[in-house]
Design a binder for these strands. Sequence first.
DNA 1: CGGGCCTCCTGGTAGC
DNA 2: TGCTACCAGGAGGCCC
Length: 262
Amino acid sequence: MPELPDVAEFHARFDACALKKTVRRIRVFDERILPGTSPQGLGRRLKDQTFRESARHGKYLFARTEHGWLVMHFGMTGDLVCYGKNDEPPDHTVVRFDFRDGGRLAYVSQRKIGRIDWASDKNAFIRDESLGPDMLDDDLTSDGFLERLSDRRGMIKSALMDQSVVAGIGNIWADEILFQTGIHPKNKCSNIPPDDLREVYRVARRILRTGSRANIEGRPLPKSYLGPHRERGGECPACGGKLSHVSVHSRTGIFCPACQKE
DNA sequence: CGGGCCTCCTGGTAGC
DNA sequence: TGCTACCAGGAGGCCC
């Protein structure tokens, strides 16, 4: 599930139920989610610590205590769920954070592809992981976006999904961005006119904001979006034609062959 | 560098 | 009903 708009939703949920709260203890139900640390190590770092600040960068969520940063990545099936100490824990809870006030936060991952880690410095972590700027970063300008795509020789969809180019876009939202800009996913970056790439920048930022807001407020996406029409046999919300599949970056993409010419 | 494929996992579902 | 193959909103590693 988790691309930028989903992680933005988790971010809001984290703030509502974990920010400014003090950890009483954590429970880890599957260590494979902690490749860089251990349940004991993470527990020691978090016990009796208060989450002072949170941040999202691309598909990563960060939370700071006095000692450093908790790092969460959600893979394909991750989720963050708030609940109370008397509530049933959600299925597939991998890590549980218990707070002093009785509240609980569950990091949920059905397929356990995803990770929780620890970093002494958020920006160093972003640098070490070679993450590009967040697609919604205030400092990312249209010129900056063009600059990052300028030396790309491959397909536009691959570039958008490459977290070292810009962070936050995955398969679903790359399809959405290309649909709304009328660009075929297999088009080469180098064949797309700069003005069209500026349009990609504008559209991407607009729809990622819209998607984030819709998720946070629990509203569906606009019906004019490709997203709600992804299911098999779906029809293009713009022209009513049949949507097609295309494999790029080893992922199944959806596009409208009439609206997005190669 | 870029593309394609495999891998880590688990579970839902289409198809027989 | 039961079984299997395949797929899935991520991403690193490997080969060509």
